[in-house]
Amino acid sequence: MSDETPKKTNDGQRFDRLPETADDREVEGRATREEVVEWWDRRFGVPPETFEGYSFWEKGKGKIWILRGEVTSPIRVEALGLTFLRTRQEHWKPTTNAVQRFGREASRNVLELTREQARQFVRGETQAIEWDGDWGYLVVAHELAGDLAPLGVGLYVHDELRSPVPKGRQREL
């Protein structure tokens, strides 16, 4: 079909701002800002207004980054704000660091661990834990210094909690 405009594709070497809504989407499969914000609300109850003043960017297929404020799009730089969310897969997955930063606002799918369970979690270990809620990605937290503090994202399946804490972030505490 030579008369058809070629479809725009994702360029893994640069950051592109997410389209606002599906109507604005030019690159196939790219998440929209609306979908990203709704996902955090639906999955974790993080209020959409939490993300006012932030922009969202894709670099690499499905890797979403969050930036306070704006820059021009597209932009070729090494990093833009914080890695935030992995899309373009059946179950979207937030990053450990995004959950530590924005999981404070979560009111749904929050799993609270004891101190000993938290130690296992930050060592990167899978553990058997009872949880009546949804399977899938959870905000995993523990009580620290007077309030719940998110440790990161956990994956709950088959009555066990898996720890996706990246190697470099794991600690023996």
Binding site: Y54, R68, A79, G81, T95, N97, G168
Partner: peptide
């Protein structure tokens, strides 16, 4: 640098090389 901005949850920083 990237590891530290991530761990500290910084969102207003652009990294260039």
């Amino acid at each position: 640098l990237r590891f530290n901005t991530e761990r500290l949850g910084i969102t207003n920083t652009v990294v260039t090389n």
